[in-house]
Computed example of a mutant assay.
Amino acid sequence: MLTRCLKDAGVEVISEVKATGISKDEHGFAALSTSTHGEILGGALLISTGVRARTELAEGCGLAVGRGIKTNQFLCADTEQRIYALGDCAEVDGQAPVGLLAPGWAQASWLAQHLSTPTEVPAPDFSASDVLMLKGQGIEVAAAGDVSAGFWDKPELQATVFADPSAGRYLKVVTRDGVVTGFLSIGLPQTSAELVLAYERGNQLPVDRSTLLRLDDPAALDLSSVVPSDEDQLCRCSGATYGQVTHAVGEGCTTVAQVGDSCRAGTGCGGCKSKIEELLKKAPALA
């Protein structure tokens, strides 16, 4: 179903390809050579292989390294408290680098406060939420937790599945004693937003799971039964919250760009711009 959504967006998807090399012409890259699909022609080659911490410099300086530059919970990488590491290169208190922008922003903000404040500032939990959203305009995909449970795996687990391939919509939700432990949603933006909040807060879902689907019914009057709080994240790239964006709007920001300058919301993948625009439209009410 996701492949179909991508094709509708103009992306040709070829799966289960085993690449063996590339072909070039006088202009450079010309095709991807494969043992399964022959040569796949293209004007450019983009390779996406995840992230891995570059620790060579730190290791050469005698710092402890593992999956990243090892630090304590306060981001300190040496015993003299002179060197700090954060972001994708840091293994903070035994946790592997997560490869996401929001934890890096949170670490940078805390470290700036720590270095500029004479009193000790408690270290927050820098671990990232495992909510993942596909960063593609017009393609609504969100996932979190573990969705591997089947219909009859354990009595306390409930798996609910909805599929409407012709409309490009799919939803699987797994709950334990009514609380969301994982979900996968395609083509259901309002339902996804509700599930993200319920998942991160540990809220129970309605007994009738089908009521979630009404959130994406254009005729529905109440688009969400859960109202985001000021502490809930609006921008997952920067970590900006609904409260920070609301404050920026209240301070006079009238465009998405101005909000981004104020609190960094909307400056990453752009997936939250529609939410920022909604808050901007409500500016008179917020004021």
Score class of each variant (00 low, 15 high):
T3M: 14
C5G: 10
K7T: 13
D8W: 14
G10S: 06
V13C: 03
E16S: 11
V17N: 01
T20E: 14
G21D: 05
K24H: 11
E26D: 15
H27D: 14
G28T: 06
G28E: 08
L32E: 01
T34P: 01
H37C: 04
G38P: 02
G38L: 06
G38T: 02
E39S: 09
I40K: 02
G50R: 08
V51Q: 07
V51I: 12
R52D: 09
A53V: 01
A53D: 01
A53H: 02
E56N: 13
G62Q: 08
A64C: 09
A64V: 13
R67A: 06
G68T: 00
G68P: 02
T71P: 01
L75C: 02
E80R: 09
Q81K: 14
A85Q: 04
V92R: 07
V92N: 04
Q95G: 13
G99K: 01
L100K: 05
L101V: 15
P103D: 10
W110D: 00
W110L: 00
L111I: 01
A112I: 12
H114N: 11
L115H: 08
A123M: 03
A123S: 05
S129T: 10
D130E: 10
M133T: 11
M133R: 13
E140N: 13
A144G: 02
G145H: 06
S148M: 04
G150A: 05
W152L: 13
K154V: 11
P155Y: 15
F162N: 00
A163P: 04
D164V: 06
D164N: 10
P165Q: 08
S166K: 14
R169N: 03
V173S: 00
V173R: 03
V174R: 05
V174W: 06
T175V: 10
R176T: 09
G182M: 03
G187C: 04
L188I: 05
Q190G: 05
E194N: 07
Y199H: 01
R201Y: 12
N203E: 14
N203G: 12
P206Y: 03
P206I: 00
T211I: 11
T211Q: 13
L212W: 01
L213K: 02
L215I: 10
D217E: 15
P218W: 02
D222N: 14
Q233I: 14
R236A: 11
G239E: 03
G239R: 00
A240R: 02
A240Q: 02
A240M: 03
H247Q: 15
G250S: 05
V256G: 00
D261E: 15
C263P: 05
A265C: 07
G266T: 03
T267I: 10
T267K: 10
C272T: 03
K275M: 14
E277L: 11
E278W: 12
A285I: 09
A285H: 08
A287V: 09
A287R: 10
